[in-house]
């Protein structure tokens, strides 16, 4: 499978990265080179092989239902949450107006 300029434009849009036509032109052969190379995986016989789910055998631990048990993963830290915001007002993050 290989990509063309329209496909690159589409995935750049999906990934929310603005790209110029010239950038797309440059990316097409680069991405095709990488894709052609990774496609050698297609030759591996994976009959009966499960996709890897956990690289080291381990299962999911569950947390107790306690609010703010660890301050690092709890709430009530609005100032910290907003501290690096490009636009914060009245306790909210601000973004360009969204018309729904």
């Amino acid at each position: 499978m290989s990509v063309d300029t329209a496909t690159v434009a589409k995935i750049a849009s999906l990934a929310r990265i603005r790209v110029s036509d010239a950038e797309i032109e440059a990316m097409v052969p680069e991405l095709n080179g990488i894709l052609a190379w990774v496609e050698q995986l297609g030759e591996v016989d994976v009959t009966g092989v499960e996709p890897m789910t956990a690289v080291i055998p381990n299962t999911l631990r569950l947390r107790d239902d306690v609010v703010n048990a660890d301050p690092l993963t709890g709430g009530d830290i609005r100032d910290k949450v907003l501290a690096n915001a490009p636009a914060a007002e009245h306790g909210f993050f601000g973004v360009p107006k969204v018309i729904e």
């Binding site: 947390r63 306690v66 609010v67 703010n68 048990a69 660890d70 690092l72 993963t73 709890g74 709430g75 009530d76 830290i77 609005r78 910290k80 949450v81 907003l82 009245h90 306790g91 909210f92 993050f93």
Partner: peptide, 17 residues
Amino acid sequence: SGAATAFGAEPNAQVSL
């Protein structure tokens, strides 16, 4: 996360990192 779920809190008060 450990942030609370209660309804009606101040904006972004119940938000963890």
